[in-house]
Simulated scan of single mutants.
Amino acid sequence: MDRKIYEQMAKLDADHWWFAARRRILAELIERVARPPDDARILELGCGTGHNLAMLGRFGTVDASELDDTARAIASERLGKPVMAAALPDVSMFAAGSYDLVALLDVLEHVPDDAASLKSIIGLLKPGGSLLLTVPINPWMWSAHDVAHHHHRRYRQREIETLARAAGFTIDLISPFNTLLYPPIAAVRLLGKLTGKESSDDAMPGAGVNRLLDTIFGLEKDLIGRVPMPFGVSLVAVLRRPLA
C-alpha cells in the first residue's frame, strides 16, 4: 500500500470504528470457533502497522511479518520484538508446523498468487491448527479504495471455499460480515462509481458518527456463525489444517 495509507492507518487504528469493532469480532471468533490452546503460538502475516497484535496476544505468543518497511517498524515497536519481512507465498523464515493459529487479515487480496500463499500457510500450522482469514468481497464494489490499497481482487465466497479446499484446509466457518452497514457502504461505493470518485475513504468520521458505526458493526460479534449473514462488505473464515 502507499506510505500515506500506513501513516493514516497508524493514526486511526486505535479508535476508528472499522478497526475497533473488527478486532472485537475477530477476538470472539478466535475464542468461539478457532479455539487455540492456552499459550498458543500465533503468527500474523501482513500485520501492517500492528493494530491487531495486542488482540492476538491475548491468546498466546505472537510472531508477525510485514513487507513494508514503514509499517514493519511501527509494528515492531508495538510488538516489542522484530517483525519479519515476508512476501507471500514465501514463508520460509518461519518454522514449518509450529503455529496453532495464523492470522491473514485483509492480506490475501494484495498477493498475486493467492493459491500458492494458502498452500504455504497450511504448512506453518500444527495439525489441527487454524487460519483466521478475512478478505474484501463483491467484485462489483471495486473502487478507488481498492486501488489506493493496492488490491489485486475482491472475492466471491465460493472462490475462497475453492482456494481453501485446494490448499488442504477444512472449513470451520465462512461468512460474510460487515453486513449491518452493507447498505450505506454499498450506496457510497455505487455513488463513487457514478461520480468518478478517485480518492480512498479512510478518514476518521466525527466522534458521534464513529461511536454509532462502531456500535452497529460490533453487534455482529455474537451473530457471525450463529445467524446466516446473507451479504456483507467482507468475508471471514476459520480454516483448519486436518489432524491427519
Score class of each variant (00 low, 15 high):
P184L: 01
A116E: 11
P82G: 03
D2P: 01
S92Q: 05
S234V: 07
E7A: 13
A237S: 07
S92G: 08
A203R: 03
G48V: 02
R154I: 00
L243I: 12
G208M: 14
P176D: 06
V238E: 10
F177I: 06
L235R: 04
R24K: 15
V236F: 07
A148M: 06
H150I: 07
R189A: 00
A73K: 10
R153H: 06
L190V: 00
E220R: 00
L79P: 09
R32H: 05
T195D: 10
P82M: 08
K221A: 15
D214C: 12
V135K: 01
A27V: 10
W18Q: 01
L105V: 06
R211N: 12
L235T: 12
R58D: 06
G80H: 06
K197N: 15
T49V: 03
A237Q: 02
D146Q: 00
Y155L: 08
D63I: 02
A54W: 05
K81M: 12
E7F: 10
R158A: 12
L223D: 01
A87E: 14
R158H: 14
A95F: 14
L108W: 05
L239T: 06
I185D: 06
S117F: 05
T170K: 04
I160W: 03
S234M: 05
K119C: 13
I174K: 02
L124H: 13
G218N: 04
G57V: 09
W140C: 04
P112S: 06
V188T: 05
W17L: 01
I137M: 07
A21K: 04
R165P: 02
I137N: 03
W18P: 00
G218T: 05
F169C: 09
A75G: 11
D13G: 11
R156W: 11
G97I: 10
G60T: 08
D202Q: 05
A166S: 11
A85I: 10
A54D: 13
E220T: 04
M204A: 08
K11H: 12
L180K: 01
L26I: 14
L29I: 04
G57L: 09
M55H: 06
I74K: 15
S92Y: 05
R153C: 07
P228S: 02
P82D: 15
A27N: 11
F231P: 01
L29C: 02
H145T: 07
M141A: 10
S98R: 11
D2H: 09
H145D: 08
K197C: 12
A207C: 04
P112N: 04
L213T: 00
Y6C: 08
T215H: 11
A186L: 07
V233D: 07
L213F: 00
A167T: 12
L191K: 04
A85E: 12
G168C: 15
S143D: 01
A166N: 08
L219I: 06
D222S: 08
S98Y: 15
S200Q: 08
A166Y: 03
S117M: 07
F231H: 05
F59E: 11
V62P: 08
R226I: 02
L29V: 03
